[in-house]
């Protein structure tokens, strides 16, 4: 079907193709905006602190922060802080996530366990783990392990709660299918309960990851001699603000990396969603 319009020949196929191309350009534009926005902020910051709109003592320009980063890196000092913090995050994360999943699954599957543990979880959840830091330090000392425990404590709760919700959200008909086709308790656990709870459980793990980063910085500000939080806190107290900003930006960078990593993982382990 061709149609004469303003002296030009149009056909529906070409029209749609043009429309499609326009949509593609728009899509790419949106992606570009996402990339531009952090660059724009950094540039604005650079210009403002160089022109004196921002006080250079409090807001050193990003270029200066970058060069400080490389100085710290070559001295090897920063690397120690980073590796210590990453170790604490990883260990604390695992120590919170694994019991969180196991206890959450048990609570989801067995009502008596759920009714027994729920009040305990509810009672402890509102207390910020950081408020318990003094007790944790008394119990576990000021070494690495007390930081690991602090992180584990704050990661545990969102994981437990989401795992329980994940199990309880499994469609009843899937439980019926398992029962009707004679699934043994082991098969039921591995083939129905665990995969069925996985999507909601992973959301809890995502939250746990974000909380782990919040916690590590604060935990390292109290009773620590190394780590990114320690770097931020001591640099601030010594008025070495460039070093402090290096620490802040590192935290932001790791947070971003971890979310990307977990999201990638999510796509890998729940391809059926």
């Amino acid at each position: 079907m061709h149609e004469e319009k303003e002296g030009k020949l149009y056909n529906p196929y070409e029209m749609e193709q043009q429309e499609w191309k326009k949509r593609q350009v728009k899509e790419r534009g949106k992606q570009l905006l996402t990339i531009i926005s952090p660059i724009f902020i950094l540039l604005l910051w650079e210009i403002c602190s160089r022109t004196g709109v921002l006080d250079i003592r409090f807001f050193p320009p990003p270029s200066a922060i970058v060069s400080t980063f490389f100085e710290l890196m070559t001295s090897g000092l920063l690397w120690t802080h980073i590796s210590v913090s990453l170790y604490r995050i990883a260990a604390g994360f695992l120590l919170g996530v694994i019991p969180g999943i196991i206890i959450g699954l048990l609570m989801g599957l067995y009502a008596p366990i759920r009714h027994f543990i729920s009040p305990i979880v509810m009672a402890f959840m509102p207390i910020p783990t950081l408020a318990l830091l003094p007790i944790i330090i008394i119990l576990f000392g000021i070494g690495d392990f007390s930081k690991v425990v602090t992180i584990a404590g704050s990661v545990f709760f969102p994981v437990v709660i989401n795992t329980v919700a994940g199990v309880l959200n499994i469609e009843k008909v899937h439980l019926d299918v398992a029962k009707n086709y004679g699934a043994s308790p082991t098969d039921f656990f591995l083939r129905i309960a665990f995969p069925g709870a996985l999507p909601v459980m992973l959301e809890g793990i995502q939250m746990g990851q974000a909380i782990a980063l919040l916690t590590i910085v604060a935990a390292e500000m109290m009773g620590a001699t190394s780590g990114i939080g320690y770097l931020i806190w001591t640099s601030y107290k010594a008025f070495m603000l460039k070093e402090m900003f290096v620490g802040l930006i590192l935290i932001s960078f790791f947070g971003f990396m971890f979310s990307l990593l977990l999201r990638g993982l999510q796509r890998k382990i729940i391809p059926w969603r």
Partner: peptide, 23 residues
């Protein structure tokens, strides 16, 4: 079962084999 009886985290093949695998 009625419409939602297929298990979403199992492939088509695994769904069909479900009863046999459970045994």
């Amino acid at each position: 079962f009625q419409e939602k009886g297929v298990i979403p985290w199992l492939t088509v093949e695994e769904n069909v084999a479900f009863g046999l695998n459970m045994r």
